[in-house]
Design a protein around this nucleic acid. Structure first.
Length: 513
RNA sequence: GAGCCCGUAGCUCAGUGGUAGAGCAUUUGCCUUUUAAGCAAAGGGCCGUUGGUUCGAUCCCAACCGGGCUCACCA
């Protein structure tokens, strides 16, 4: 895309009609300026957060002077006194303003609205109705809000249960204007804080083992490491097309060749595919490679990692996902791909020829698409009959070689690679294998992929000559792992859409009115 | 990509073939410990866009735009 067309495609909203509510706020802004109130001052000395006031106050304590700052979320005016709730990053606290105490500022307070950001200095007290509040001695406007905020009212009953009225719930508006969503829906903030905790917990877990966090290219001259269609972009100075990475696998393995014992990366990956509840075109994948280890070792690491993260973040190794109670406590059940299919369909596929397998597919009322090999059929039967049934975390091991061009052949079973996936709540959570380090076999596998590509399989992998060169220098035996961070977050926060664990999920462009 | 559903006031939603309604929010008045504050009054809408049917469309039909759900794709 050229610079010019980009500029033209930018949505402009400043011409948007200003409705009465917005007009009124602008008038108030002008009036405040006339009264020599700076509606956008430079700083405010906050000394306390709402939560620490609410939890720290006792009725018999000496006068506690505090200074808070935040957004006005509700106002109840009663002539010469008013109450409002001020929301900061920790929560909300009520503020009491009395004309006798703040004088002229009380008249300016009349010009303030829900959504304005203010600073309050005062002392803490408890109202007749029992709510711990700040009695204002001074009020300062810190930022005037020019747009009406959706009003969400809540009532707390005697049991302390919150009842919410008129929630801001339109998903399109919530995603497009996440800033409003975050202001108005406190639970949304919690999900994202938890997401960060998850990432930090994983990082701590790896760092404490001496694994090295690294960064590898996002713009790649050649994409690889997964089955997916890439985004293509163009570098003007070099005049070459570059691909946004679909995985960082091949780069991390180059680093293992280079002599690092263990490397990991939280990788923003990009796949040019459909979007739905569990797919966003850009997403976060954690990849880890550890030298001199195999996939069996990696299974123990994964159990330990995920249960540790769950406890770190939720305080418990069990959590609720939808209607299911999931327990991450190790050890997790292990099943080979063939045994899993046998368990759930009663068919033994071990050593079965392609022709026989087609027959079995038909018996199970599954369609055999043209060009399907045994690997595809096994995958189909697995996703149809097994995956949805696996609720508790389960290792599925030993995949057909056709499905795994970067995994090492099984040490004792032909046609199979040393690979596992963790299935949880009916969905894939992670993928790992003993990494293929035989450069000749790797070349042969790439060539198989290129044949598929030539046949029109757009997601087949591309032969990467430089990666092969690296392997030819010699890569130690290595265990590799990929975990979808968005999916893990969905599980640990009990969200059923990826859009609810991404601040700014991909949306079609907003239409300018 | 297919099917189904949705788009009405700042927010959440009713509604009708004769150009619209509620609650909250907003404005005005009263009210110096209220709390989904209250009482009284008022303003606010090209009923997603463009066509069609009709004397007349927010309502019926079509296309388009945006969104949601389900399925497919996603190794």
């Amino acid at each position: 895309m050229s610079d010019i067309s980009q500029e033209q495609s930018i949505t402009t909203t400043h011409q948007e009609e200003i409705n009465e509510l917005m007009k009124r706020r602008r008038e108030e802004l002008e009036e405040l300026k006339r009264r020599n109130v700076n509606p956008y001052p430079y700083e405010f000395n906050r000394t306390n957060f709402s939560q620490e006031i609410l939890s720290g106050f006792t009725d018999d304590m000496p006068q506690w002077n505090v200074s808070i700052a935040g957004r006005i979320m509700s106002i109840r005016r009663m002539g010469k006194a008013s109450f409002c709730h001020v929301q900061d990053s920790q929560g909300k606290i009520q503020v009491y303003l009395k004309k006798d105490d703040i004088g002229e500022a009380y008249d300016s307070f009349r010009l303030l609205d829900i959504g304005d950001i203010i600073g309050i200095e005062g002392y803490v007290f408890r109202t007749k109705m029992g709510e711990i509040s700040v009695h204002a001695k001074r009020i300062e406007l810190l930022a005037k809000s020019l747009r009406p905020l959706p009003i969400v009212k809540e009532k707390v009953d005697e049991q302390g249960n919150k009842q919410v009225f008129d929630p801001f719930s339109d998903k399109e508006l919530r995603y497009r204007q996440r800033y409003v969503d975050l202001v108005v829906n406190p639970k949304v903030r919690e999900v994202f804080i938890k997401r960060t905790k998850i990432v930090n917990s994983i990082r701590r877990f790896f760092d404490s083992r001496g694994y090295l966090e690294v960064e590898t290219p996002i713009l790649q001259p050649m994409y690889g490491g997964a089955f997916a269609r890439p985004f293509v972009t163009h570098h003007n100075a070099l005049d070459i097309d570059l691909y946004m990475r679909i995985a960082d696998e091949l780069y991390l393995k180059r680093l293992i060749v280079g002599g690092f014992d263990a490397v990991y990366e939280f990788s923003k990956d990009f796949r040019n595919e459909g979007m739905d509840r569990s797919h966003n075109p850009e997403f976060t994948m954690l990849e880890l490679y550890v030298a001199f280890k195999d996939y069996k070792w990696m299974m123990e690491l994964v159990e330990h990692l995920v249960s540790t993260v769950a406890i770190d973040v939720n305080g418990s190794a069990t959590c609720t996902v939808g209607n299911n109670e999931i327990d991450f406590t190790p050890p997790w059940k292990r099943l080979t791909m063939f045994d899993a299919i046998k368990e759930y369909t009663g068919r033994n596929l071990r050593g079965v020829s392609e022709e026989e397998m087609k027959k079995i597919m038909k018996e199970l009322h599954l369609e055999v698409a043209p060009g399907m090999n045994t690997g595809n059929m096994i995958d189909e039967m697995f996703s149809e009959f097994v995956e949805p049934k696996l609720i508790q975390p389960t290792f599925i091991t030993d995949y057909p070689v056709e499905m795994s061009p970067l995994a090492k052949r099984h040490r004792s079973e032909p046609g199979i690679v040393e690979r596992f996936e963790v299935i949880l709540n009916g969905h894939e959570l992670c993928n790992a294998f003993s990494e293929l380090n035989d450069p000749l076999d790797q070349r042969a596998r790439f060539e198989e992929q290129m044949k598929l590509k030539a046949k029109g399989d757009e997601e087949a992998q591309v032969l990467d000559e430089d990666f092969l060169r690296a392997l030819e220098y010699g890569m130690p035996p290595t265990a590799g792992l990929g975990i979808g961070i968005d999916r893990l977050t969905m599980v640990l926060t009990n969200q059923d859409s990826i859009r609810d664990v991404l601040f700014f999920p991909q949306m079609k462009p907003e239409v300018t009115k």
